[in-house]
């Protein structure tokens, strides 16, 4: 998705440094998730006891932790797990939410009423609590955290998809397609879905940022991967006991999370703006 944005916007790129920076950062993080070796050669799991709690330096960009592990290496290696959880969470929310919304919007009637009341309730319980409930039931671990975050974001997708389906369904061009004799399945596949998909995908990019935050929050609380496997939220939590002496252990991993969220939000805003310009 970032590709299509940059390609279509090439002419205005110099005027949007923030957007370029965001795209570059996200590309780097994705690369780190796939091939962490590109960024660091240091071991994220076993440290060098002699180099405990070193401040950031050229040798250790983000400093070292209490067992002498390079914090930058742990952040880079943590990208894989943290991003995988985020992507899974967004997929769960997108697929399940969109399917529910599509069904409710297209079938209408009592099914719509029941489904939307359930969605109302899902939104009445704050997202973190909802995912904590799912974690309580399913148990800990990165995958369960991802599913929990996905479930807690599902309602927004269902609601948007339903609204989009209803909007497109009641639009004049869909009626004119019906009046020209197109059957409902054709209307759904050729008119409703392509026109409803855009806003839903924009929401997906926006949810990506939220999901990074929620996944790392649950990981911070200790419900994610078991140590010493690096995960962004857990890294920040690990530095809590050294707040007074080793600021880098909390500040720099947290900054990474913040930067990723900012970059995705910037990109999704650009996507959203492009959509509304096209309209």
């Amino acid at each position: 998705m970032p590709d299509s944005v940059t390609r279509r916007r090439t002419w205005s790129l110099p005027r949007q440094p923030g957007l370029v920076l965001s795209a570059v950062l996200l590309a780097a993080v994705l690369l780190a998730a796939v091939a962490p070796g590109v960024f660091t050669g240091q071991d994220p799991i076993t440290g060098v006891p002699a180099e405990r709690l070193r401040a950031p330096s050229p040798a250790h960009l983000f400093g070292t932790d209490e067992t002498g592990r390079d914090v930058f290496a742990r952040v880079v290696h943590g990208a894989s797990l943290s991003l995988r959880a985020t992507v899974l969470a967004v997929l769960v929310a997108l697929v399940a939410g969109a399917a529910i919304g599509l069904l409710a919007g297209f079938r209408g009637g009592w099914l719509d009423a029941v489904v939307m009341r359930v969605v109302d309730v899902l939104q009445a319980v704050p997202a973190i609590l909802l995912s904590l409930a799912v974690v309580t039931a399913l148990g800990f671990g990165t995958t369960n955290v991802a599913i929990a975050v996905g479930v807690s974001n599902l309602a927004a997708f269902a609601r948007l998809m339903r609204a989009e389906v209803l909007r497109v369904r009641s639009s004049v061009f869909v009626e004119s397609a019906r009046a020209s004799g197109v059957r409902w399945p054709g209307v759904l596949a050729r008119h409703v879905l392509p026109n409803a998909a855009g806003p839903v995908l924009v929401l997906a990019t926006l949810t990506f940022g939220t999901a990074v935050l929620e996944v790392s929050a649950l990981s911070f609380l200790g419900f994610g991967a078991t140590p010493p496997t690096p995960e962004w939220g857990a890294l920040v939590a690990g530095g809590r006991n050294f707040l007074a002496t080793a600021w880098w252990m909390t500040t720099l991993p947290g900054l990474t999370v913040a930067a990723v969220v900012l970059a995705t939000n910037r990109l999704s805003r650009a996507l959203d703006g492009e959509r509304s310009e096209l309209r």
Binding site: S171, V172, P194, N195, R279
Partner: peptide, 14 residues
């Protein structure tokens, strides 16, 4: 067949 008032809305934008 029907021809609508608003040609902006009656054609699928995609």
């Amino acid at each position: 067949q029907l021809v609508y008032q608003n040609p902006y809305a009656s054609l699928n934008p995609r």
